[in-house]
Design a protein around this nucleic acid. Sequence first.
DNA 1: CTGAAAGCGCTAACAC
DNA 2: GTGTTAGCGCTTTCAG
Lengths: 337, 337
Amino acid sequence: MGDAPHTPPRRAATRSDVARAAGVSTAVVSYVINGGPRGVAPATAARVRAAIETLDYRPNLAARALRTGTTEMIGLVVPDSSNPFYAEYAVAVERRAAVHGHALVVANSGDDPDRESRLVEGLAGRRLSGVLLATTGRPAGRDLTTYDVPMVLLDRDGPVPGFAALGPAFTAGAAAVVGHLVDRHGLSSVALCTGRRGPFGANSPEQGWREALDRRGLDGSTVVRAPFDRAGGYAAGRELLTGTLPDAVFAASDLLAVGVLRALHEGGLRVPEDIAVVSFDGTSESEYSWPTLTVARQPVAEMAGAAVDALLAGMPAGAYRAFDTDLVIRRSCGCPT
Amino acid sequence: MGDAPHTPPRRAATRSDVARAAGVSTAVVSYVINGGPRGVAPATAARVRAAIETLDYRPNLAARALRTGTTEMIGLVVPDSSNPFYAEYAVAVERRAAVHGHALVVANSGDDPDRESRLVEGLAGRRLSGVLLATTGRPAGRDLTTYDVPMVLLDRDGPVPGFAALGPAFTAGAAAVVGHLVDRHGLSSVALCTGRRGPFGANSPEQGWREALDRRGLDGSTVVRAPFDRAGGYAAGRELLTGTLPDAVFAASDLLAVGVLRALHEGGLRVPEDIAVVSFDGTSESEYSWPTLTVARQPVAEMAGAAVDALLAGMPAGAYRAFDTDLVIRRSCGCPT
DNA sequence: CTGAAAGCGCTAACAC
DNA sequence: GTGTTAGCGCTTTCAG
């Protein structure tokens, strides 16, 4: 696209062009650009800056990367970055990475372990400063430890040997929304709608749902599982429609909830009058569904920031940090307003 | 993260380690890896491959980038990658880029021209193969032509001097949905809900809406403008509620439509019975709103693919290509099912 | 078919 | 405070 009409610097200016123009050595140019490691006389620095300006010089980051061993970029590997949850995660990661002067490379694994490994390998080869990896419940792909690139695992339910990891307090968050349904609205049968694989151990939406019910002597028997997307939620909702209807459904993700909502609406049910729906995540889509969703909201920006910081600071392998969710009350649970 | 427990290749193997192990020169290793530019005897190649395997060698792409001048990465700069439209665009771009062996760097401009320039500059410095830039209606930022990195403009309404560009056939698509409202459902007053800046010329949702109405001798006077997001749509919807209600509203984006829908619902209106709503974009969010939205769907995957190909093939500056949208009939217009 | 070697642009010792 | 210079790991021309 570099056309005739525009200023045509045949060849991009290099650092030695600048040095020549400013009448200094290349080292000095480096010192000026990087603010070190040695000082430069103010007058000299000014001349260098002027030369940079005139020549419209921009450092070649590829060369710097080769020299320093880091590209000042981090990678983010997620199952699907068009899932609003990951999309919002990605934006937050980019913002925080920018603070550290890093750019963001995003890759979608499609939730396929092989593809995921290939992606991580590719990113490692590109010499990124590190990669953030979300694996949707699967144990971390095989041998990810062999790619020598710093890594932190996202959206995990607990520590993972060999890796730094973080995630939301699934159980507590889920228990809070489900508890709200029972305590505040007097609902007693709450179905669970969740994925086929996601976390289901001690820290999981499933566990939180179960605990909230158990603690109140309620029965938690209706569970419907589906793929972790809108279509999956829709299918789950239709399935729900075929049995005896619960008072409410707790979806382990906004996407699932949105699908459930559509199925319920199509079935002629009113939400929350006929059946309440709440979910986990709290993406902005949950704020504009109909009715608006009461959710356990993950502190995405905070988690993303912590993940980036951990990656760049070298959070120790094996460490894990859980983040509390917020209970956001909207209309789908039956609360007024 | 590189801990004791795991195989600890102190220092990543380099190409000359491989050469030594295989008893060949570094050049031969290159030939094997890159399949050229010269041939290699099968036996030698096998030895090289074995050495690569044993040493767990992975090429340093930063070095290759310095040497070849390209990082095999492309950039995508959008106002907000958590907007589902851009999120889906990004996924499609990544997919197509992967076919060319390129990774994707995503950056959000927040629709701020200064930030956008800085981002493009940063990406140019990183020596990406090219950058795809979506500027939401603004004319391309100042002096973007001076960054010597190939660029193609996304989501444009027409040719842009100095750049290759592409976008949807806004006018035709908008005219089609609006026409559907009139011809199929007999609605005669259709309000327009659009952004404050987006395209509004010969190829724009606004123009399509106006033409569809004009052609049928209908009045197109109700226009409500708002920021291009869900909250903006919500505000626009509330504004609509204060005047005499139109038969339908055409939103220039799914996000806007979703906001309008929420406002309408809260106002106690039934969609489509009391008022129909249709929109432009057709992201998957439009498929799971309530009611599901009838839309002019942009062929996102196709546009993204074309954009990547154009970028990498060097589509000539000044060229422009418009893509037809699909009319996707769902419930919000009043059609059965 | 294979090897030697010259750089790509930058950083950071190490000299002065 | 500033200059010289040796590479970072790779590709590719040029000899053999």
